[in-house]
Structure formats: C-alpha cells, structure tokens
Simulated scan of single mutants.
Amino acid sequence: MQPQADVETTLLGPILPDRECGDCTACCTELTVNTPEFAKPAGTPCIHLSDKGCGIHAIRPRICRTWFCAWRRVASLPDEARPDRSGLLVSLNFVDRPQNCLEGVSIHVRMLTGSDAIANGMAATVLDGVCDQLVPVWFSDGSKKMLMHPDTDVARFVLSGDAAPQDLQDEVAAWREHYAVFGANH
C-alpha cells in the first residue's frame, strides 16, 4: 500500500499516458529520498545517475518506479513545463512536522539552478496551472520559499484563526476545514 501515491493521484491526477520523462532527470538530483531501500540528500545527484540517465533503470528502487513529478500528472501544464525544459520541478510535498497547516501537504514548485523560468514567464504559466484548487502551493527559487496559493490575505486569516472579512469568509472557511487535520494555529 502506498498512501502518498493515492494522495498524489487524488490531488494531482493519474499519470498521463502521453507524457514520459524522456531525458529529464531533474528529480534524480533535486529531491531528497529517504526510504529504507534508498536515501540521498536534496541537491545531490543519485549515485546511479549517469550521462545516459539512470544506470539501474530496470531495477531502480521502488520510490523511483512509483514517484512522478506533477508535469507527468497535471494535464494543464504545457509540454514545455517538463522540468528539464522549464527549469522548474513541481511535486507534491509531504512535511512530517509542518510549521503550519499550509505546509503539511502542498504542491512545491522548485526553480532549478540556472533556470530563467521567472524571466521567460514559465514560472507564471506553471503556477497558473497548479493554483486552482484547495491545495497550498509553495515556490522556491533556491534562496527562499514563498507561499503562492492561497493568496496572502486568505493565508493570514487561515493561519491566525481571526474572523475573515465578509468577502473572504467562504474561502477562508474552506481552507480551514480542508487543512484542520494539520492544525491551523502553530
């Protein structure tokens, strides 16, 4: 049983049959892997990564066989949003001890080293493609992590527990209800 895969499918959708990783190996370097079978720190290339891709692809660890970036799941992301083309790696993020309710389960858009995704507009395109549901979206440019969705006013009321103004009450209530399991006030 793989609960994270179920959450990923529920929140991001199933694997799209017409999208393949191809030459993209961004996840093999960018992500932290910490499973009993295999571990590596974020920002460090996998020991099995070669100039031709995964050196053990046929027998790669389970996490590598079952994990897929959001580009492989979110149909609204254009083909150019594949991580090696866009300079952005988008994934569902799970934080064991979140600082607040908007960090427990969220979409994380990571800008890869050397990316010009902000300047060329791809970051805006990708953010538009994933900021459309009750899932927090964080953007990291390598130096800081910023909450992009919900917007600042909604997030402030969700996190503070304060009464929201009339025009935000329904949205704030929906976020609070959806993320109550993570505790709104940390």
Rank of each mutant, 00 (worst) to 15 (best):
Q2T: 08
P3T: 08
Q4P: 06
A5G: 11
E8W: 13
T9E: 14
L12H: 08
L12Q: 06
L16M: 10
P17W: 10
C21H: 04
G22E: 15
C24T: 06
C28W: 08
C28G: 05
T29N: 07
L31K: 01
L31C: 04
T32H: 02
E37Y: 13
E37Q: 15
K40F: 14
T44N: 04
L49S: 06
K52W: 07
G53H: 02
I56H: 05
I56N: 10
P61Y: 07
P61W: 07
I63W: 00
F68C: 03
C69S: 10
A70T: 15
A70D: 14
A70E: 14
R72K: 13
R73Y: 12
V74M: 13
V74F: 09
A75Q: 13
A75F: 06
S76E: 15
D79S: 11
A81C: 04
L88Y: 10
L89C: 05
V90R: 04
V90M: 14
S91I: 09
N93Q: 15
N93M: 12
F94C: 01
V95K: 03
D96H: 12
D96S: 14
P98W: 05
Q99K: 09
Q99I: 05
N100H: 15
G104E: 12
S106C: 14
H108T: 05
V109W: 07
G114F: 07
G114V: 14
G114W: 02
D116W: 03
N120G: 05
N120C: 12
M122F: 02
T125G: 00
V126H: 06
V126E: 09
L127M: 11
D128R: 11
D128A: 09
G129C: 11
G129D: 02
Q133F: 04
Q133I: 03
L134R: 10
V135P: 00
V135N: 04
P136E: 12
P136R: 08
F139W: 15
K144L: 01
K145F: 00
P150V: 11
D151V: 04
T152G: 00
D153T: 14
R156M: 10
R156A: 12
F157C: 04
D162E: 15
A164L: 03
D167W: 05
Q169M: 12
E171Y: 00
A174I: 03
E177V: 04
H178P: 00
V181T: 09
F182M: 09
H186T: 08
